[in-house]
Design a binder for these strands. Structure first.
Lengths: 239, 239
DNA sequence: GCAATAGTGTCTTTAAGACACTATCAT
DNA sequence: ATGATAGTGTCTTAAAGACACTATTGC
């Protein structure tokens, strides 16, 4: 019987073959009436030239969690950290990456288009692709499946929370939230239902300002500082 | 510019330091009116003698997914594969394991107590621990936190599905499902609500048999073969 | 004034909560 | 027959759906 200290002194982490571990993020935004996902053109092998999710290897010297890895890679590509970031799922297996048995920890993120538009416009390898046009692109590895999982999470959570506010700028109108919700869910939503939810959630507050949108001015709203997301006990579109 | 084939020929997966990757499972069951989690007494270092979740390293020669790793380890410890198995979350960081930067993929599982009682009784290192008595045990690594995350998942999902049926034997009465739901949620549930949900879910069917429970006989139910779980659009206990 | 968008009032619908009622079985 | 547990009927309640109504603004 040895002590833990003795055991650790002699421990060799490379004795057993271990999987290749990466972290990838599905970052959604809304732009011109479409739901888009941030994709990066792969500059190097493998799958060079394909479009892949922003991600990469964990830097065990710098990252305290895989969340840090996700944030680091997203900040590199989008120039800003997302408004929403949560773990999505992991994807693993011997065949998903030609380099061998691999595992990716996928994160799910949201951001307002305006918050990163300038940065993304300035780089040539990152681009917002509308999710309904992904068929036209060669996607790397199993990233198509990861995106679908992210889409499913986005739609589910939109049914029982105000998650779409994290796709909007700091201040926004009820109409913007309404449009965002309809784009994500792909069907019409009663305006009244959303307004009731804004009230009931306690997540949002009026800024006091209004903006002209062509007709009557609309009041501006923002998320209360440091407020947690509110989960409703019923879904929208319950049929 | 090199081709992918040339690149792969020269690829060395050990060039970059990579995290220690494990798979752990939170397997819950119900026994004697208590919610229990399967724990294993650690036979070797690190954290020898502590109680930990059943889990271990991925065997990249045998496991096609981390799900297979979870199943392999659970079958070793519980002697049977769980009725329910889904991915829970990942936990990572430089300090959670003394061997170095580590990552565990946590799975969430349910099984009926009777299905693995004989096997667990036959081994000395695995035991069902009631979740409300875990304070009395030295738990390994961050397994306390992983269990709490599993508990949260179990309680949330119980509010909008019939998930507790996966903690019950193949055939069961409405009263058993009712009791299971109340134990998991920790508060009384209207019998009528559950009966309505059984009907509406389309997941269950009567076996045609009845069992005596002391008074009037109760009808037996089972899950329809290969049926998917039904998600309700409202939660129980919505207040 | 009129068109257009913002915002409200209120009736209907759905599924849960509450709880009393009836049914069946062992004794 | 009685008591206990199984199972039903039905009223109330909470929140979404539907949709018509009023309010405000630019022209």
């Amino acid at each position: 019987m040895i002590t833990e200290a003795e055991y650790l002194k002699n421990y060799d982490a490379t004795r057993f073959p271990s999987p290749l571990v990466t972290v990838d993020s599905v970052l959604f935004t809304l732009h011109e009436g479409k739901l888009c996902v941030l994709m990066v053109e792969r500059a190097s092998q493998p799958q060079q030239g394909c479009w892949g999710l922003p991600g990469g290897f964990i830097d065990i010297a710098r990252d305290q969690h895989t969340r840090d890895t996700a944030l680091r890679k997203l900040t590199e590509k989008a120039g800003v950290s997302p408004s929403w970031l949560e773990q999505l799922d992991t994807f693993s297996g011997p065949d998903r990456d030609p380099r061998g048995w691999s595992l990716t920890i996928a994160w799910f993120a949201l951001i307002a288009w305006v918050d990163c538009a300038p940065h993304i416009a300035s780089v040539s390898d990152a681009r917002w692709l509308p999710v309904d046009e992904l068929d036209g692109y060669a996607l790397a590895f199993d990233h198509q499946k990861i995106i679908e999982t992210g889409l499913h999470r986005l739609r589910q959570k939109t049914m029982y929370s105000l998650l779409p506010v994290y796709c909007l700028p700091d201040t926004f109108t009820q109409a913007q939230l309404h449009e965002a919700t309809e784009i994500i869910l792909g069907q019409p939503i009663q305006r009244k239902s959303l307004i009731r939810r804004i009230e009931a959630s306690g997540m949002l507050e009026e800024t006091g300002e209004s903006v002209a949108t062509g007709a009557r001015k609309a009041r501006l709203w923002r998320r209360k500082p440091d407020v947690d997301i509110h989960l409703f006990s019923r879904n929208l579109l319950a049929d």
